Simulated assay, not measured.
Amino acid sequence: MQADHHSVSFGNEEEEFYYHRIHRKRPFERNNHYHGTYEIYYLISGERSYFIKEKLYSIQAGDLILINKFDVHKTSGQGDPEHERIVINFSDSFLGSGHPFLPAGLLSMFDQDQPVLRLRPSEQDSVMHILDSMAAEILNRSPAFEHMLRLQLTELLIKANRLSASAIEPASPSLNPLHQKITDVVQYINSHYPLKITLKQLSDTFYISPFYLSRIFKEITGFTIVNYIQLTRIREAQRLLLSTDLRIVDIAETVGFESLTHFDRTFKKMTSMTASRYRKLNSQQ
């Protein structure tokens, strides 16, 4: 059974629960993306670079990464491309608001500034035991296995919450000056997205030529500057659609769109649905 665990897939990352384990030997790089579910990423072997929200991290085997809903993230190679990892995504509704074993405030750890936990060997063994047990439930499909997955996920979350307060040697963001400069640009966009932001304005603010800024921003983040600004606005619009009763026209203005038509077109392009349909399908009851 253990050998079968090296390739396991269950669910979809945008649905209630998703588990995916894979061992890759060839170069692999996923584009920047985000989703409306929480993500737990565990690197079993190898080394990777991880861009999360606005910082770049170097991660190694045994690192546990916690990614909040709607946080932009991207993995890419670092050295030898061979690596093995496990990804778990889950929604707010998967464990249920009335789950008797879910401590209050447990998910707040996904909102911390340090998303990468560097685990001791004994902690790695403990985490892998839970992850392997989840894989066994998925592969065997025993009666009520999905209920068991909920219990195992709760155990993993409690374990991660404890480790977030005691993990040693947290992985530091890359100190590469170029990466730091782009981090500063990303932070600026994240703070000023409701306002009009132009390439010239960013160029003047950060003392980089427009051409060079455009090129290195795309190389490091995977986005053009215009696309990243639009993504940031749409990501905030999604949050407001789910967490407020604001009218869609007011949300469009709040996140920085000058017209509802432009907002509607951009929202549908990025999410494959209208804002009203997104609110209807995803609003929690």
Rank of each mutant, 00 (worst) to 15 (best):
R239P: 08
A252G: 11
G256C: 06
M270D: 08
A275Y: 00
N190S: 08
T274P: 05
V226A: 11
S203L: 02
Y228V: 03
Y193A: 07
S259C: 01
L241R: 06
T221A: 03
S259K: 10
E253P: 06
I248S: 04
M270F: 15
V249M: 02
A237N: 07
Y188W: 05
F267S: 00
S214F: 03
R247G: 15
T232E: 03
T266I: 11
T254L: 04
Y212E: 15
Q230L: 14
I220N: 03
T271Q: 02
Q201R: 11
V255G: 04
F263A: 04
F267C: 01
S272F: 14
T221W: 03
A237L: 07
T244F: 12
E236A: 13
E258M: 01
F217A: 07
Q230W: 04
G256D: 05
F263M: 03
I229M: 05
R265C: 02
T198Y: 05
I208E: 04
D245V: 04
S191R: 11
E236K: 15
K269R: 15
S243G: 03
G222E: 06
F223D: 09
R239G: 09
H262T: 09
T205H: 06
L213E: 00
P210N: 10
I229C: 05
K196C: 07
I248C: 10
R215P: 10
R235L: 12
S214T: 09
Q230P: 02
Y188H: 15
T198V: 00
Q187L: 11
S243M: 08
L240Q: 07
M273C: 12
S272G: 08
T198M: 04
K269S: 15
Y228T: 02
R265K: 15
T221S: 01
I225N: 00
T271S: 00
A237Y: 01
D250Q: 10
T261I: 06
V249W: 04
V226S: 12
H262F: 06
K218N: 11
F206G: 03
L231H: 13
A275M: 04
G222Q: 05
K218C: 02
V249K: 04
H262D: 12
L195F: 02
L260Y: 11
F217T: 07
F223H: 12
F211K: 13
T271R: 00
Q238I: 02
Y207M: 10
T261Q: 14
R235W: 00
I251F: 07
I220T: 06
Y207S: 14
S209N: 06
I234V: 15
R215Q: 10
M273G: 11
R233C: 00
V249E: 02
Q230R: 14
L213H: 04
H192D: 11
T261C: 05
L241H: 01
E253I: 07
L231P: 05
